[in-house]
């Protein structure tokens, strides 16, 4: 569904992505794990059209998308739920969700808005309770839910989730990951970027490891969990454990 080929990107003179190649199949949850500064968020921003790649190509289904503006991506059904949520703090939860459907044709907006909001409230019941509250007054977890809900209003075929569990209480993070699985089961393809490899590997079908702007490993969660490098770097299990075995 999404194919990224040899993509490089720079911030000024600093090369952040080095010939990154990977793909996501329809109906999969694919995780992209990597430490701070590995280039994960940059990669998502390149895919979303917020940051132009210096080289490489990106295909969404059969369409070349690496030269399109962000709003065109949304119309194709490719939505990013950004890190830091980026919701509209001074607007109510309802207004935030309403704006989520901005990219849909006017007629559908009117016709579908209510039933679609209900679907999102079914996924995240707490948002219904907060419907008339300003988004800025929500807790971190609720804001994350709103951010995902807002993206879902555009009826995406593929979601790019940027560290959805960052800074959340474990239970809330768990809830969000469960919803991610639900979305996949309902036919949405997901690219999940995570620093927290443990949780990401729990729910994904395949994963890639990004390090210093390069894809260094790929495999099923099972394969990666068995990999010493991954265990050392991301799961906090150091060599000692192996030695003493």
């Amino acid at each position: 569904m999404l194919r990224v080929k040899n993509v490089s990107a720079y911030y000024g003179n600093i090369q952040v992505l080095r010939r990154v190649t990977f793909h996501v199949n329809k109906g999969e949850i694919v995780s992209l794990i990597g430490g701070n500064g590995a280039g994960k968020s940059t990669l998502l921003n390149v895919i979303s059209g917020l940051h132009p790649p210096s080289a490489g190509t990106i295909f969404f289904e059969r369409q070349e998308i690496h030269k399109l503006a962000p709003d065109k991506m949304v119309r194709l059904g490719l939505l990013q739920v950004p890190e830091q949520r980026q919701i509209f703090n001074s607007m109510t939860v309802t207004e935030n969700l309403e704006l989520g459907s901005y990219s849909l044709p006017k007629k559908e907006q009117k016709r579908m808005a209510k039933s679609q909001r209900q679907e999102i409230y079914a996924l995240f019941p707490i948002l219904q309770e907060r419907a008339q509250q300003r988004a800025g007054t929500l807790s971190g977890g609720e804001q994350q839910m709103l951010s995902i809900g807002r993206a879902l209003m555009a009826r995406p075929r593929m979601l790019l989730l940027d560290e959805p569990s960052l800074g959340l209480a474990p239970l809330v993070a768990q809830e969000i990951l469960e919803v991610t699985c639900k979305l996949r089961d309902n036919g949405t393809t997901v690219l999940l970027v995570e620093q927290n490899a443990q949780t990401a590997l729990e729910i994904c079908d395949r994963a890639y490891v990004l390090e210093a702007g390069r894809i260094v490993l790929e495999g099923t969660p099972h394969e990666l969990l068995a990999n010493d490098e991954v265990r050392r770097a991301f799961l906090g299990k150091d060599y000692k454990e192996k030695w003493e075995r």
Binding site: S48, L50, A69, P70, D71, M73, V74, R75, L79, Q80, V81, P82, R85, Q86, I87, F88, N89, S90, M91, E95, E98, L99, G100, Y102, S103, K106, Q109, R150, A151, M153, A154
Partner: peptide
């Protein structure tokens, strides 16, 4: 109106607005 709200959204958070398909230009 939706367009007016979208303008407010851009004012408040350009990135967030671009990511839900509001054409900032």
């Amino acid at each position: 109106t939706m367009v007016g709200k979208a303008m407010r959204a851009v004012a408040e958070n350009r990135r967030g607005a671009a990511l839900i398909g509001i054409g900032v230009y």
